[in-house]
Simulated scan of single mutants.
Amino acid sequence: MTRIIAVQGDITEQHVDAVVNAADTRMRGGGGVDGAIHRAGGPEILRECIARFPHGLATGDAGWTTAGALPARWVIHTVGPNYAAGQRDRSLLVSCYRRSLDVADELGARTVAFPLVSAGIYGWPKPDAIAVAVETITAADTAVAEARIVAFDPATYAQVQAAVARVLP
């Protein structure tokens, strides 16, 4: 069973095998988590995104690149649904976590740090974004031993911590 941990901090500073990037379909860097990961990881991440995913990824899918200068080994990029733009199919958000864990398993990653996919500028309601993350990771058949859900601000961290506590044995 995967151990889920709530963490308050910066996802770019997580010492894990893989960090998950909440990317857009083009995978070329941007704002929020995506921009932070590209800035902290350096140009190698963008170069590999372009080489490995010249047409980007579909919403709900995931793929990996190097982590560049990040303390992680890999970045798992996943494309969350844009709730603010009308993409409100919850199964797409669930797929982001499932596919990210599938990619982690393919890589042999045992520790993974997740942001709250789609909960930033894409506007997914935060309580449901947290529920999707916790429920999907908890139910996953994965070799990932530790999944961190990283929240940048104290209020979100408290919400994630409460959700994680509800599923602990």
Rank of each mutant, 00 (worst) to 15 (best):
H55Q: 15
T78F: 11
K126L: 15
Q8T: 01
A69M: 07
V167T: 12
A72R: 12
V167P: 04
T142G: 04
P54T: 09
M27V: 01
I137A: 07
V7H: 00
T25M: 09
A162R: 09
G86I: 14
R90D: 12
I5Q: 08
H38R: 03
Q159G: 07
A84Q: 04
R47H: 03
A165D: 13
T142K: 11
A162S: 13
A85I: 08
R98P: 11
L101A: 02
I121G: 00
F53R: 03
V94C: 14
G30T: 05
A22G: 06
G41W: 07
A147E: 02
T136D: 03
R88C: 15
I50N: 02
P125S: 13
I4P: 01
R110D: 15
A18T: 09
G123L: 10
A129K: 03
V144N: 01
V20R: 04
A155T: 12
P54W: 10
V117R: 02
M1V: 15
N21S: 09
R98H: 13
Q8E: 10
R166D: 15
Y97A: 11
T66S: 04
A158T: 12
K126W: 07
I5R: 06
Y83K: 01
N82D: 11
E13F: 00
D10A: 02
Q161D: 09
S118P: 03
A6N: 01
L116Y: 12
Q14D: 00
R73W: 13
R39K: 13
R90C: 09
A109K: 13
P127G: 04
V150Y: 00
A163T: 03
D141R: 06
G35S: 02
I137N: 01
V160G: 00
I149N: 00
A104Y: 14
I37W: 08
A58V: 14
M1Q: 08
V94L: 12
P71A: 00
P43I: 10
D105H: 14
G108Y: 15
M27W: 06
G41A: 06
G32F: 07
I37R: 01
A151D: 00
Q87M: 14
I137R: 03
R99K: 14
A72K: 04
A131F: 04
H38V: 03
T78G: 10
R47A: 10
L92R: 14
G41I: 13
A18F: 15
G60I: 14
Y83S: 00
A119Q: 05
A119F: 04
L93P: 11
L93T: 13
V16R: 03
G108E: 13
T2Q: 07
L116M: 01
D10C: 08
R110I: 14
L93F: 14
G35L: 02
T2W: 07
K126Q: 07
P125H: 15
D128P: 03
R26N: 10
T66P: 06
A140G: 00
V117E: 06
T12D: 02
G41Q: 06
A165E: 14
V16M: 05
G35V: 03
R99T: 13
T138Y: 09
G9C: 02
N82K: 04
E106K: 08
I137W: 08
L93Y: 14
G35E: 05
P169G: 11
E48F: 08
A62S: 09
H15A: 11
D105C: 13
P154F: 11
V79N: 06
A69G: 11
V160Y: 04
A18V: 12
